[in-house]
Write a protein that binds this DNA or RNA. Structure first.
Lengths: 210, 210
DNA sequence: ATAATACGGTACGTTACCGTATCTTTTTGA
DNA sequence: TCAAAAAGATACGGTAACGTACCGTATTAT
């Protein structure tokens, strides 16, 4: 047999996925430091041998979790952008951005990476590159295009993208990370709307409604 | 004797301060989870009895560290603001804000609070209230005044303050937190300058230079 | 001077957790 | 059917770290 999915391989992959799902839950709930391998096992009922057969150590498991969740969750940070309607594009981008950052997994991932970055610098790089950095890049590309077509007047597209997304985050993101409050959708819409208007006044006076 | 500073009290206070300083170093270097009480003791050479005489447990010590550092470091988040020169005020505020957030203690405090917020919700509240929240409040007050005097056109001063500071943070803050890169002063100046111009274009068209 | 208070040093009890080892059972491929 | 591979169950070694106990010493107030 030489198929891509051997029976054993299929079995392995399934078990690995099961472990990863359980471990993600535990690690995100407890944080890397407080999470224990035994807790992960208690969730799926397997044996330690199996767990360590799939992941060599706790750090490897954490790395696998981060990369896995990054791939899955952070993809939404690059929505298709409509070049014909800048305002709608910014709103879409801003709301999508906030939704990812404020999602359960987005928050957990952020907390985990911020706290463990000094001990997992390489992981932190890839997290940023696939997450917030990618979102900024995506928006930067859009700004670059719009600039070339003379629609936007931005001196530094990359900086403009960062600052627009920074406005979108405002204090809401940090307050949610700190478990102080979770914003309602209406607040998100208002926040993003305000950020869009402020940005457009600076970058596209023609579109500025004031 | 009934003076405010008894001899014993002075002794106690000095020791407490010494412990607090050493513990701050350790906790910020290692993070709450990895920091150990023995490490703290190794730094000052005292005995465990003394340590636990001043702080009942590890969590209390952490709380003391956070409040202490908050009081000391985050005071700079409320610089005096000059009502006569809005642009200069925003630049001052932005640069001061970034300097605090990017300082050694600011970064360590941020990492510690973000990661431990779920386990120290009350501490997280006070951290935000005395830190980023206070900065936003401060700037909000300024905007409110300027709005009443007809200089600034801001619909929601609080939101405007949050978003201005959000622009200032951009991606630089997160990248530094993630140990990816530390910005130079020139970059900070450029970032703040850009944020100020963007903000003014939206809030004070008269002052907008474009 | 002397009692009270705080500190230094050390050993220890207890718990917790990572990772390994051993053995058995189930599932898969030939 | 039967060998191989993967998984289940469990016990355990080793280490680390929180917090306590005990005993001796120094500094301060009366």
């Amino acid at each position: 047999m030489d198929t891509a999915l051997d029976g054993h391989a299929r079995r392995r992959a399934a078990k690995r996925a099961e472990i990863l799902a359980a471990a993600t839950e535990i690690f995100f709930e407890e944080g890397y430091g407080r999470a224990t391998m035994d807790q992960v096992l208690a969730k799926i009922g397997g044996s330690k041998r199996t767990l360590y057969n799939h992941f060599r150590c706790k750090e490897d498991l954490f790395a696998a979790i981060v990369t896995s969740v990054s791939d899955r969750v952070l993809a939404a940070l690059r929505p298709p952008l409509d070049a014909d309607d800048i305002r709608a594009t910014l709103v879409t981008m801003g709301i999508g951005y906030l939704n990812v950052l404020l999602s359960r997994e987005g928050l957990a991932l952020y907390r985990a990476m911020v706290s463990e970055a000094p001990h997992f610098p390489e992981l932190a790089r890839t997290f940023f590159a696939n997450g917030p950095g990618r979102a900024s890049d995506h928006l930067c590309d859009f700004f670059q295009e719009q600039k070339m077509q003379g629609v936007l007047k931005v001196d530094d597209p990359r900086l403009a993208a960062e600052q627009f997304l920074g406005m979108v985050r405002g204090d809401v993101h940090l307050m949610t990370v700190l478990t102080i409050r979770k914003p309602r959708k209406a607040q998100i819409k208002k926040t993003v709307g305000q950020a869009v208007e402020t940005f457009l006044c600076g970058a596209a006076p023609d579109l500025c409604n004031s």
